[in-house]
């Protein structure tokens, strides 16, 4: 269920940027998500409509773009790109690997409708 909180965060960020730009409505939100992210895209999408409610984000589409996830091998210290399924270091074969603690899900851009010409 932590995706619910993440989606609320995405909505807040989108609303604050839309309001600063004087937008009347948000048409879409583009979210970049690391392939190694703990957050499940399906679950984020599932909660999206629910959290937008009657705000300016109501009806907005949520789109995902995937960015590579970075992993670190704790055995040989090599870092490598990979997704959630990674369980072995490609260099030394160790299973002692962990995702690098980088932002794994961020709002890349929003598309808005403004009243002014």
């Amino acid at each position: 269920m932590h995706e619910l909180g993440v989606v609320e965060g995405i909505r807040e960020i989108a609303l604050s940027h839309a309001r600063s730009a004087g937008a009347s409505r948000i048409l879409s939100v583009r979210v970049a998500i690391a392939k190694s992210s703990r957050y499940l895209e399906d679950a984020l999408a599932m909660f999206w409509d629910e959290v937008c409610g009657t705000s300016e984000a109501s009806g907005a589409q949520i789109e995902f773009v995937h960015v590579p996830g970075e992993w670190l091998c704790l055995a040989c210290s090599k870092s490598f790109a990979g997704g959630r399924e990674v369980c072995r270091c490609p260099e030394c074969g160790s299973q002692w690997v962990k995702p690098v603690d980088a932002p794994e899900c961020y709002v890349e851009s929003i598309e808005v409708e403004t009243g002014a010409g």
């Binding site: 807040e12 899900c105 598309e111 808005v112």
Partner: peptide, 17 residues
């Protein structure tokens, strides 16, 4: 009405922070 794209680049957890 005008449609425009706003570049954001903000961690989804920033709102919580």
């Amino acid at each position: 009405m005008t449609v425009k794209t706003i570049h954001v680049a903000q961690n989804a957890l920033n709102a919580n922070r």
